[in-house]
Design a protein around this nucleic acid. Structure first.
Length: 436
DNA sequence: TCTGGGGTCCTAGGACCC
DNA sequence: TCTGGGGTCCTAGGACCC
């Protein structure tokens, strides 16, 4: 018998946690909000039935919420973390191996005799001991277990919250009725690319030509294809690898314009990120700072710069990090914009072996010899305009920006960040130093 | 008026080295 | 003055996930 995996996923996890601590919420529509109470990030079944979409801005749903008496909760991550640990403890006992995949999900390596009955029993146990309902999907690979879990969830009454993705005609029939973008790892973009190849269902994907998939979706696509066909490519990671970076950022309720105000917010984020890094017993060798204007404000001039430095020595001291971050902020700050967000990313994290104490920090580059603003303005003048600039900063700032903000197609990225990385630098890491 | 905050992996291309 | 190929490391950016 082939070894099998299960994906155990808590149902509407944040809402379920809130219900454990306030049973009066049972049976009522509930939503939990994101950090600034801005978006809806968890919905109970009753809320889903009302048509409230995942990730919707709260203000767009106020009418539905008022009419239906939806209970609205701010998020409480301490509570969710605690509940998560309880669930994971129970799951671990049932498995021969386990990977905690997220706060509300875990992959389990199943014992040979673990079947439907055992899955149902495990589900009941978690519910009884923690109050959290879960669904369990089983299969030979992570992707198949994910797919099975999705099916278990969608057909909860029929499946009893448990489903195994088997082989043969029955499984294929099911796959024929599921769209590609239901696959783990297939988002909007890849499903569009698959559609271009005439592949729209999971079954069509399963039977696709590996060479063709490799060519148009790369190794990621090929791996998914093999996984769907029962070959394990994604292994169970029982020991989570060390974190590579720690980010801290927040949107402001009202936009900020002054450098001093941004500095204050940034200092707070640096302290938070630094604490987290120290908690993992790690040290940062890179610091990035970024700013964002309000991307939803069409017509407002947008500016989303970022800058970073590699450090000569690993550090996790708040004071040193704060100094670096403040200098980076000064570099990218330009007056006249309404900033909606500031953030810091502590990257290149290294373990204790690589640690060297920082005595005096010298790792910030000198004043640029190139006038970045001038270059940016010049390029924008040639290729775009102020309201619709051609360049902005790179990945950090751009990650959530809409179409108008991206590079216009046809222009190869003369990215803002590229200019930064080409600046003469002092006391940087290897590659930075080479450029000076 | 209000519209989250984190993370990961892969790839392409440049810099650099021998 | 012109000529090569192979390899590594790094950064930026794209795509996806919870």
């Amino acid at each position: 018998m082939k070894s099998r995996l299960a994906l155990v996923d808590c149902n509407n996890f944040f809402c379920s946690c809130e219900r454990v601590f306030d049973p009066s919420l049972m049976g009522k529509p509930v939503v939990v909000l994101s950090n600034n109470d801005g978006c809806i990030i968890s919905r109970s079944e009753e809320s889903k039935a009302l048509g409230i979409p995942m990730g919707a801005p709260l203000h767009e749903q106020q009418e539905v919420i008022r009419r239906n008496g939806v209970k609205v909760m701010s998020s409480n991550y301490t509570l969710y973390g605690d509940m998560s640990a309880r669930v994971m403890t129970i799951l671990r006992e049932a498995a021969t191996g386990m990977e905690v995949y997220s706060i509300d999900e875990a992959f389990l390596e199943l014992p040979e005799n673990f079947g439907f009955q055992e899955a149902r029993a495990l589900r009941a146990k978690v519910l009884r001991w923690t109050g959290i309902p879960v669904c369990i999907g089983m299969g030979e690979t992570k992707m198949l277990a994910k797919l099975a879990n999705r099916h278990a969830k969608k057909n909860r009454e029929k499946s009893g919250g448990v489903f195994e993705m088997g082989e043969g005609a029955e499984a294929e029939e099911l796959m024929a009725g599921v769209a590609c973008d239901a696959l783990w790892g297939v988002g909007k973009n890849l499903s569009r690319r698959l559609a271009g190849l005439g592949i729209t269902t999971v079954l069509e994907f399963k039977k696709a030509d590996p060479v063709q998939i490799r060519k148009s979706l790369g190794v990621v696509g090929e791996r998914m294809l093999r996984e769907v066909n029962g070959t394990r490519c994604l292994q169970l990671e029982e020991m989570p690898p060390d974190r590579k970076g720690v980010m801290a950022s927040r949107s402001f309720g009202a936009p900020l314009e002054k450098l001093e105000e941004l500095e204050e917010a940034l200092a707070h984020h640096v302290a938070r990120a630094g604490e987290k890094v120290r908690r993992f017993h790690l040290w940062a060798t890179r610091v990035d700072v970024f700013l964002q204007t309000n991307r939803f404000q069409k017509g407002e001039p947008q500016y989303c710069p970022g800058a970073g430095v590699n450090l000569t020595q690993a550090t996790n001291g708040t004071a040193a990090l704060m100094g670096i971050a403040a200098k980076l902020l000064k570099k990218i700050y330009r007056p006249g914009y309404k900033y909606k967000k500031v953030g810091v990313m502590l990257g290149g994290l290294v373990g204790a072996g690589a640690y060297q104490p920082v005595l005096a920090f010298e790792g910030v580059r000198e004043e640029p010899k190139v006038d970045i603003d001038k270059i940016v303005d010049e390029i924008n003048r040639k290729l775009g305009d102020r309201k619709n600039p051609v360049i902005t900063r790179g990945s950090m700032g751009n990650r959530r920006l809409g179409g108008a903000w991206r590079m216009k197609s046809g222009h190869r990225s003369p990215a803002y960040t590229t200019s930064w990385s080409q600046l003469p630098v002092v006391g940087l890491g290897k590659s930075g130093a080479k450029r000076s």
